[in-house]
């Protein structure tokens, strides 16, 4: 139920931000639409903690800050290597252990890896992630577990 409420709130925000027309008719239609979407979403069984990760809310902004910093750094490296000659890269494929328990956590971790240029999470099996990296050192920095630790912290 709380997920539904949360979805309702986010949907309403979405509508209000997008609409730009706040006449009575449009608002009413918006309400009807949101209700309809809620009905469909419930029927489709997509309203749960996976789609509405309200339990993560507390720490997520801090994590985002950190992630953005990482992304910027990684971007600079990759761009550098793009403009350097092709010999400078050292593509690597590696399995990395992860410590997250929930699916949500795993997904956040995997997506974070992918978001950071230079590394891509290829597969996610149980508690291992196969990572492909443009540079060997990227994998090594992943293996140090900084990101892993931060994501695991999110879960709590």
């Amino acid at each position: 139920m709380k997920h539904t409420v949360s979805l309702f709130i986010t949907l309403s925000a979405f509508w209000l931000l997008n609409s730009g027309h706040y006449s009575l008719l449009i608002l009413f239609l918006g309400f009807v639409s949101i209700t309809l979407v809620l009905v469909i979403a419930n029927k489709m069984d997509v309203v749960d903690q996976e789609s509405q990760p309200i339990h993560l809310k507390r720490n997520i902004f801090g994590y985002f800050g950190w992630l953005i910093k990482e992304i910027v750094q990684a971007n600079i490296t990759v761009v550098k290597h793009i403009w350097l000659s092709g010999e400078s890269i050292s593509p690597t494929l590696k399995k990395i252990k992860i410590t997250q328990q929930t699916d949500m956590g795993k997904v956040i971790y995997a997506n974070s890896i992918t978001l950071t240029p230079g590394t891509v999470a290829i597969d996610l099996v149980d508690d291992e992630i196969i990572v492909h990296a443009l540079l060997l050192k990227d994998v090594e920095s992943l293996e140090t577990g900084e990101m892993d630790r931060r994501v695991t912290m999110l879960e709590r």
Binding site: I82, P91, V120
Partner: peptide
């Protein structure tokens, strides 16, 4: 990068650059 990198996976990194930052 998409053009220059040697194989699919490395090209993907290049694409990732554009997608994010």
């Amino acid at each position: 990068g998409l053009l220059r990198f040697p194989d699919f996976y490395t090209r993907m990194h290049a694409a990732g650059v554009t997608d994010t930052l």
